[in-house]
Amino acid sequence: MKKLSIIALALFIQSISAQVNRFVYQVTMKPDAENKADIKSENAYLDISADKSMFYSENRIKRDSIMQKAFQGGGGRGSINRDQMEGLRTNISYSVEKDKANQKTYFKDRIGRDLYSYEEDRPLSWKISSETRKIGEYRVQKAETDFGGRKWTAWFTTDLPYQDGPYKFGGLPGLIVKVEDDKGDYSFDLMKNYKVADFPSLNQFGNTLKVKRTDFAKQQQKFKTDPMSFMTQSGGQGGFSTTRIGGGGRGPGGGGNQNPADMRKRMEERVKEDAKKNSNPIELQ
């Protein structure tokens, strides 16, 4: 009986240590360079375990859940409530994963049918200040860095046992509670945290193409000018080598007996409109 109690206790401790800590950030953005009054705000999750962390949109995981239930119910896309999905649109289409053991950061985002993945090749260089203050319940310390063409100020706390932060930020002696750029275009503010059982499984339609960061930037620009080239099986790879990681699925933009010319026109108009609304990206270079 005593041995069973010890085993049960060991399993309980193991289950607690295996849990993932979820930190909820409010992300405030001004994505339209011509209309800074158009402020977008939504929540994003930073899930942290001993081995890795993931940063992604709360709306994305909600949209994934709706789609998964529709397909499991046998209804497919036709049974999805479009108004509900529209209400869960996100300006955070990307996800960021940090591999703690290897000190590597991986960025994923969709272009056309495919998901692109690259390893971040620019290490963060922080200048830590002696300045401290309180944000909410945490005592925080100031740090500054230049990244992606912006000057960033972060406030981190050692009250929590994590050296991490939202987006690609991390590498400070504590958890980043707040980080914002000097123009006030982007800010990430910690709202709350709680434990979850495990990392979510994000839906990944199409193929995942492993590329270099500079090639990803080139593909983004190409998509803005010629979006239909990314709707083909080639994925608009544009002459550089890619490594396919898995695949399958029709993904967004596929199917239907639509007139190709009309489809191209609508696609190009939508991409141009989206590009205009997202002319002030988080990384300027």
Rank of each mutant, 00 (worst) to 15 (best):
N102W: 05
P166G: 02
E58R: 06
N203Q: 12
Q258D: 06
R77N: 15
P260A: 07
L202M: 01
I6D: 12
E180Q: 05
K277Q: 14
N91S: 15
S93G: 03
R139V: 02
M54G: 05
D198A: 14
G170P: 06
Q19C: 13
G253T: 03
R244G: 07
G136H: 06
S53W: 03
F216I: 00
N35A: 15
G174P: 06
L124I: 05
D182G: 01
R60A: 08
I7F: 15
Q141R: 13
G238P: 06
Q220G: 15
M29V: 05
F240I: 05
F188C: 09
M1T: 14
R264V: 03
G248M: 05
I282V: 08
A37R: 09
I6P: 08
D159K: 00
T145Q: 07
E42M: 11
K127R: 13
L9M: 13
T157D: 07
Y45N: 10
N35P: 08
G236P: 05
K222G: 07
G136P: 09
A261D: 14
G171W: 09
K277I: 05
S5E: 15
G249T: 00
V24E: 14
S5V: 11
E58H: 11
D274W: 15
R82M: 11
S95N: 13
G149Q: 12
T243Q: 14
F188H: 06
D114M: 00
K3T: 15
S229K: 09
K210N: 12
L88G: 04
G149M: 14
D185I: 10
N59L: 02
L115Y: 00
P123N: 12
T208C: 00
G248H: 07
G184S: 01
G165D: 03
Y25L: 13
K272T: 02
K224W: 05
G148P: 01
N193S: 15
D181I: 10
I13W: 11
R77E: 08
K178C: 01
K195C: 11
V271P: 06
A70G: 01
F55Q: 02
M191C: 04
S41I: 14
P31V: 00
S234A: 13
N102E: 15
M29A: 10
M263I: 08
N21V: 08
I282K: 11
Y138C: 03
R213K: 15
A33I: 13
K212D: 09
N278K: 06
G256V: 07
D182A: 04
I13P: 09
S93W: 02
D226A: 08
G235N: 00
G136V: 09
S241E: 14
V27T: 05
Q233W: 13
F199C: 00
N257P: 07
G149R: 08
K192R: 15
A44D: 07
M267N: 02
